[in-house]
Structure formats: C-alpha cells, structure tokens
C-alpha cells in the first residue's frame, strides 16, 4: 500500500527525511511519532505527494513519486484522505456543505451528493448537526467533519497529522475512537502524533518513530498484528 524506498527529502534548511525505507500494508494502523521537526509531517506530505522526494522513491496505492505527473495527482489524492490538526474546513459553510463540497469537486453525481454527505456525517456521529455552520461546532465536532470529508472519496488510506492536537481529552477520545473504527473497516491509517499517552492507549497499533529525519524505531519487527481493542 505505502512503500518508501531509501527516501530522502531535503529543504534549503537541511534534510527533513533521510534515507527512510518503510512498508505499510492494507488496513494497518500506524502511529508516526517523534519530536517536533523529526519529519512526521514531511512523511505524510510525501505519502500524499504534496512533496516529492529529493532522492529515493515513494509508492502509494500503485502510484510512484517518480512516474506520477502533476496532472495525474488527483487520482492519487482520491485514494488518500487527509486530516489536519487545524481541520482546514471552509468557513461560512455548514458541515453538510463542507462534506458535499468534496463530493461535488470530485465528480459525484449531483443527486448523490446530499444523501452521501448525510451518510458520512452520520458515520462520524454528526447527523443532527449537519446543517450547522462549522464555526458553531466544537473542536472535536469540526475534526469529525474533516474526517467525513476525507472519507468522501472512499480512500484506501487515511493520513492524520496531529488530528487531536487542538482537542481536549474528551474530544480526543471521541475522535480517536472514530478513526479506530474506520481502520477496523479496513482502511489503513497513518497518524502523526507526539502524544505518547495516546500511543500507549492504542497499544496494538504499529508505531514508527522518527528522529531528525531518520526512522529509528518500527514496532512491526515486534508485533504487526492489530487487534481492535483499547
């Protein structure tokens, strides 16, 4: 599903990722941990091909960082959902409109948009608040809308960059349970976090640790089996 082959990513300020090789299979749940600046976000950007490696190759769902042209990126993006710490929702629109927007711009038939957006919002537990402008939702609820939007294209993998970073304890648990449930349905999840408490709570997930751009730990050598209990 996701493969890094000796990937290096350099910026003017230095290497963000250095000689990283990794494999993530279908349906895996992976925590990407490390201090700030360790390369977690860059790793997610490389998977999403928002960034291209300076050296090496990234392969995601059949797409290669070497061969995929900017014109064809949209095909990859529909297979990789992405959620952020700051939600990145469109202000001034309702939860339904935010999810519907993703469906519309990716070519869903007009008649199918509202029922599908409603179903996605139900899946993330927001059916009753679908018509509320996102500004009127709590942080946890906004993140649920962002997750529903990420699921709109029925991706194979969900990337989450510190999705609970702006949430309180209760909201964090709710969002984490939701992502865990999504993973249980067969979607691979790669979540960048520096919250080690969270990692300990979902102990059956695979953990990769980055330090100064290098992959210094991968629990897959220890135990790859994921059992969905917390």
């Amino acid at each position: 599903m996701i493969r890094f082959i000796r990937v290096t990513k350099e910026y003017a300020s230095g290497a963000a990722i250095e000689d990283v090789s990794l494999d993530i299979g279908k349906g895996e749940f992976v925590f990407l941990t490390g201090h700030s600046g360790s390369g977690k976000t860059t790793t997610l950007k490389l998977i999403h091909l928002s960034e291209r490696p300076t050296d090496g190759e990234v392969r995601v769902a059949g797409f290669s960082s070497i061969r995929t042209t900017p014109r064809d990126l949209w095909k990859l993006r529909r297979k990789v959902g992405l959620v952020f710490q700051d939600f990145r929702l469109l202000p001034g629109r309702t939860a339904m409109e935010n999810v519907g927007f993703a469906l519309e711009v990716t070519g869903s038939p007009p008649k199918a948009i509202t029922p599908k957006a409603q179903r996605l919002l139900s899946q993330v537990g927001l059916a009753s608040k679908s018509e509320r402008p996102v500004e009127q939702l709590s942080g946890g609820e906004r993140q649920r809308v962002a997750i529903a939007r990420a699921l709109a294209t029925e991706p194979l993998v969900l990337l989450a960059d510190e999705p609970t970073g702006n949430l309180d304890e209760r909201a964090t648990r709710g969002v984490m349970d939701l992502i865990w449930e999504i993973n249980a349905l067969g979607m691979a999840v790669v979540m960048a976090t520096h919250d080690l408490e969270l990692v300990r709570r979902y102990a059956s997930a695979r953990v990769m640790e980055l330090d100064q751009g290098r992959l210094v730990y991968d629990s897959s050598g220890v135990d790859r089996a994921v059992t969905h209990t917390t």
Partner: peptide, 11 residues
Amino acid sequence: DEIYIMRLVGA
C-alpha cells in the same frame, strides 16, 4: 483555502 481543499480531496 478552497483551491487547497479542492486539490487535497482530488479535484
């Protein structure tokens, strides 16, 4: 932001 999100979701 709209352009960003459209790109993000695969438009």
